[in-house]
Amino acid sequence: MIISEQKPRKEILEMLTDRKRIFIVGCAACATKCQTGGEDEVKEMKRELEKEGKKITGTIVLDTPCDERIVKKDLSSLPALKNSDSLLIMACGVGLQTIGNLIDRLLVPALNPLFAGTTERIGRYYEYCSLCGDCLLDEFGGICPLTRCAKGLLNGPCGGARDGKCEVNDEVDCIWALIYEKTKEPLKTYYESRDYKKILQPGKRVVR
């Protein structure tokens, strides 16, 4: 899922400085799982903004704000939007932009989307996937070195690991030690340089 964190309140308030009538949108998918933009967080945000003297015109937690169909069905025709000068979006950047495609209001992001990752517990997440468009997980013992090695090295580790920990962050295992525990094959195989046409924007638009 898309891991996110809430922006500091101060930053949110700064973005809302001249805004008086605010509608809050949450996300029932990833942001709920991360406890950054679910029902509870939306309620809490409403309370705090009201304390700051803002008028909250309404709130909704959309099933998936990243889906135009859902935004169209559940959000775009709400009467409360007419009375709102801005929308505070407690969803990732995909959600915000999807809403922006359909609703002509100032949109303010309340979250910082971080990465596609896994959850150990709330607040402890690990990035696992770079959404690269060319999955390699049949190799490498099912562990993605492109994402989980700090340097994205495909042919094996750098020499920087100390006591099995990454040179960039000593709380993180050198992923090559984990790959090696599962399979030695990647150390014997040569992997070509990656085709970044497939990986980087604007190549990631999948149209069928």
Binding site: K151, G152, L153, N155, G156, Y190, S193, Y196
Partner: peptide
């Protein structure tokens, strides 16, 4: 921005 477009093995080969 870290680059690492090629890794050292790929660069040797290049």
């Amino acid at each position: 921005k870290p680059v690492y477009d090629l890794d050292p093995v790929q660069l040797l080969k290049t």
